[in-house]
Nucleic acid binder design. Structure first.
Lengths: 210, 210
DNA sequence: GTCTATAAGTTGATAGAC
DNA sequence: GTCTATCAACTTATAGAC
C-alpha cells in the first residue's frame, strides 16, 4: 500500500461549519437589539436607558446584548453609527444630480422625511447631538460634521459667496426644528407644504448678500 | 440610573422661609446648587447626573439638595424653570419697542448672547428640549412653547402673511444651531458678525412669499 | 457626614441552535 | 463541534434617610 505523497500545500482550512446560519442568526438579534435601543434611548437618553428595558423590548436576554455589542457604551456607539449611516446616506444621495436651489430643496425634504419616518433616530440625534461636554464629544462630533457638511456643500455649490460655516448649520437647524414641530404638532400637513415653508424661510442663503 | 427606593416618609416640604436672614441664606444655597446642577446636567443629562457630583461641585452637603428641592426630579424641574425664566425674559425683552426686522434681529442676537454666555443653560435646553417621550414632555412642552412663541410673535408682527407656526421654529432652530456652531468652533467671530449671517439666512421670512 | 436599600452594568457557566 | 443566547450571580454606583 503506497503511502500518500508528502503534502506540498498547506492543509485546507477547517471550514467553519454552518457559518452562514450563525451569522444570520447573529445579525437578526443585533437588529432587534438596535431597534429596541433606538426606541428606548430616544425617549430616555443614554444614561436613562437600562439594558433590562432594551432586552425586554427586543425580546432577548440581557446577556445577548453583551454577546453582540460588548458593553452599553459600544451598543450606543453602534446605534449612533447605524442611525448616522442612514441619515448621511439619505441626505448625501438626495441631490441626485440636482444643483442650486433644487439640490438644497432635495436635502431639506430628505431630512424632513427622516424626521417624519424615523422618529426614534431623529430624537436620539437631536437629544444627544448637542451634548457638548467631553463625555460624548469625541464620538458625536464626526456625526454632527457628516450631517452639517451635506448642507454646507450643497449651499456652497449653489452660492459660492455664502458663509457656509455658519449658514450650513443654520439651515440644518431650521429644517430640524421645523420638522420636529411639524411631526409633533401639525402632522396633518404635507411634506411638500412644510418643505416649501422651510425653503421659503431660508431661500436668501442662495442669493447674494443683502 | 438607579430608581430611588420608595419613600418611607413624606417628602420634606419646600420650606417656607421664617425670616429674611434665613431666606437669604437659603436662596444663596439654592443658587449654588442650581448653578452646579446646570453645569453637570448640561454635560451628562438628567439621568446621568448624580446628586453627589452636584453637591460636590456646589460645595454643599447632599442633604442640602433635599432641604432645598426635595428630590432629584424637583431639582431638575426647578433648574428648567430657572433657566427658562432667564431665556424667556431675555428674549421677550429683546425687541424693546423695536418692530419689523429690527425686532427680529434683537431676538436673534439675544438668543446668540445666551448661547455664548450661558453655555450650560443652553446645552441643557438643547439636549432635553427634544426628548419627545412621555417622560418629560409635560414639563418641557411649556418651556419650548414659551421660547418659540417669542419668535412667532415678532415674525407675525413684522410679516402678517408669514406661516409663523412653522417659520417661528425654523428661525429659532437656525439661530440655536448656528449659535452652537459659533461658540464651539468659531468663538473668535463677533456677535454682530454672526447675528448678521443668521439674519441674512432667514431674512426672507420678513418678505412676501416667493 | 454616614448608612442603607436598590437598581443596573457586567461577567462566566450552561443550555441550545446550527 | 462551533457558535450563540440565556440565566443567575456579582459588583458598583447612587437616591434618599437619619
Amino acid at each position: 500500500m503506497p503511502t500518500p505523497p508528502p503534502r506540498t500545500t498547506t492543509p485546507p482550512e477547517p471550514v467553519v461549519p454552518h457559518a452562514d446560519g450563525f451569522a444570520a442568526r447573529r445579525a437578526a438579534t443585533s437588529q432587534q437589539i438596535l431597534q429596541a435601543a433606538a426606541q428606548v434611548m430616544a425617549d430616555r437618553g443614554y444614561a436613562g436607558t437600562s439594558l433590562d428595558a432594551v432586552a425586554e423590548l427586543a425580546g432577548v436576554a440581557k446577556g445577548s446584548i453583551y454577546n453582540n455589542f460588548g458593553s452599553k457604551e459600544r451598543l450606543f456607539e453602534a446605534l449612533i453609527a447605524h442611525t448616522m449611516d442612514r441619515f448621511s446616506a439619505t441626505l448625501a444621495a438626495a441631490p441626485d444630480g440636482r444643483t442650486g436651489a433644487a439640490a438644497l430643496e432635495a436635502v431639506v425634504s430628505a431630512l424632513l422625511v427622516e424626521v417624519r419616518d424615523n422618529p426614534a433616530g431623529t430624537q436620539l440625534l437631536a437629544a444627544e447631538l448637542f451634548r457638548m461636554g467631553r463625555t460624548w464629544q469625541e464620538s458625536l462630533e464626526p456625526v454632527r460634521e457628516r450631517i452639517v457638511s451635506v448642507f454646507r456643500e450643497v449651499i456652497a455649490q449653489a452660492n459660492p459667496a455664502a458663509d457656509v460655516s455658519v449658514v450650513g448649520p443654520a439651515v440644518f437647524g431650521a429644517t430640524l426644528i421645523a420638522g420636529l414641530e411639524w411631526r409633533t404638532f401639525q402632522p396633518e400637513r404635507t411634506l411638500p407644504d412644510i418643505t416649501g415653508v422651510v425653503m421659503g424661510s431660508v431661500r436668501s442663503v442662495l442669493e447674494p448678500a443683502g
